[in-house]
Design a protein around this nucleic acid. Structure first.
Length: 416
RNA sequence: GUGACUGUAGUUCAAUGGUAGAGCCCUGGAUUGUGGUUCCAGUUGUUGCGGGUUCGAAUCCCGUCAGUCACCCCA
């Protein structure tokens, strides 16, 4: 039997209703805030991610599906959306002249990690990005959108964590302070943290190991070290959130694994995803557009994992069934009833039929299984008498009509 | 990449080293043209794969593949 590669899922029809509900809810909220959809490629030149996300990040250094095209150029299946949207924005000369240019996207992402609960190699995200304004309002706006989406999806018991990791300048100052603090403690800390010390000192704050808990406890918080500009921005965002009733928790230890963030970072977390905890995350990235060769353009955005939202949502009621299951008694009646199908469909009514079964019992069984609202019966007896029968599959009630008034019957159904 | 656990019917799971089973699903039947509930009957297997131990392996051992969960990290 042929199998799918590890960490890749098929989404069968029984999950599609819930799946589309997530996608539609997100798209609705985005459009309420004037974010418009952009369809970005699944494949980019590897450079887009290497430069955008950061060559030293885990995503780029060990989690990308990368291959060469026939010309020997390195291509990569996108591991996230932001880098592609930025590339598209910079590359397009029309959109990058707009202020507060808003996009949203949705689609598959790929990361070559070991699959586990809430983590797949091919997974789906939706996300929103705003380009062209450094105003704290927009940080608030994207957070508000994700909060609204979470509420509309009826997700319970989540926490919004928020932090500011400062701008390029003040973050550097803080990193020096942090390294000075940690340096004498490195001996008692884990191997990973010793690596982080040089590669990405901010992540020292993120270690969950017991050996590092003690030194971490008294580490200086970034909040006291960021510049006035960043600090004001940070408090402004929190003020907006508070005044509009969006609950949040300030977490000065929240750092993110992607290099491009500046100032605001945030995560929507829950303890119901096993080893994972975030179902949405994002932040501001004021330097990324410039890094991609565009004019200096501040930006902010976020992304959310659809499979993770799916796991957090309650089971939804099953799909709604078809309108009519057509029941026949073999060859001749099958001809008659088949000829009516285009007519029924033209009234926007959905149908199904089993041409191979001729027994009524089996056909009714199938009608029931397909959740049909009605059964339309035209068998040999009906053809002989010029009638057709409609059975209401919920009440069990059955009515007989004249076959030459079939159109009239359909019209009367539409009015209901 | 590292680790732990699990692989038996379509599915969920049984089976002291001794003839591979049950529920659900599916198919058929219970006044032959009427579903759901009920009752009866029936189909379904290279026990993931390959070796080894044994008179005998689903069961024990080794390898391999797959899945799940966790770590790292992330949505």
């Amino acid at each position: 039997m042929l199998k799918k590669p590890p960490g890749i899922e098929d989404v069968f029809p029984d999950r599609i209703t819930k799946w589309n509900h997530i996608l539609n809810t997100a798209a609705d909220v985005f459009s309420m805030f004037n974010y418009r959809e952009i369809i970005i490629p699944v494949i980019e030149f590897t450079e887009v991610f290497a430069r955008g996300i950061g060559a030293d990040t885990d995503i780029v250094s060990k989690e990308m599906f990368t291959f060469e095209d026939r010309g020997g150029r390195s291509l990569t299946l996108r591991p996230e959306g932001t880098a592609s949207v930025v590339r598209a924005y910079v590359e397009n000369g029309e959109y990058n002249r707009l202020s507060a240019c808003k996009f949203f996207y949705r689609g598959q992402m790929f990361r070559a990690e070991r699959p586990q609960k809430g983590r797949l190699r091919q997974f789906n995200q939706f996300g929103a990005e705003m380009f062209g304004s450094g105003d704290s309002y927009y940080d608030y706006e994207v957070i508000l959108m994700m909060d609204l989406i979470s509420r509309k999806l009826n997700i319970k018991d989540y926490t919004l964590l928020i932090n500011s990791i400062g701008c390029k300048e003040c973050r550097e100052d803080y990193i020096q302070v942090l390294k000075a603090y940690y340096k004498p403690l490195l001996g008692s800390m884990c191997k990973d943290c010793n690596n982080r010390f040089d590669k990405n000192p901010l992540r020292l704050l993120d270690c969950k190991k017991e050996s590092c808990a003690e030194p971490k406890k008294d580490a200086p918080d970034i909040t006291g070290y960021i510049c006035d500009n960043c600090s004001n921005h940070h408090y402004r965002v929190m003020d907006y959130l508070q005044k509009s009733g969006v609950a949040y928790t300030e977490d000065p230890r929240l750092v993110r694994g992607l290099d491009y963030y500046t100032k605001t970072t945030f995560e929507f977390v829950t303890d119901k995803l096993g080893g994972q905890n975030a179902f949405a995350a994002g932040g501001r990235y004021d330097n990324l557009v410039e890094l991609f060769g565009g004019r200096a353009t501040p930006a902010v955005g976020f992304a959310s994992g659809i499979e993770r939202l799916f796991l957090l949502m309650d089971e939804e009621a099953g799909e709604t069934g078809i309108d009519y299951f057509l029941i026949h008694s073999g060859s001749e009646s099958l001809k008659v009833i088949t000829a009516l199908i285009p007519k029924i469909i033209s009234f926007n009514l959905s149908i199904d039929i089993d041409p191979e079964k001729t027994g009524f019992k089996a056909q009714f069984k199938k009608a029931n299984r397909e959740n049909a609202k009605h059964a339309l019966i035209i068998g040999d007896n009906e053809i002989e008498s010029g009638k057709f029968i409609v059975k209401d599959m919920i009440t069990g009630e059955q009515k007989i009509y004249d076959l030459d008034k079939f159109d009239h019957y359909l019209k009367s159904q539409i009015k209901n």
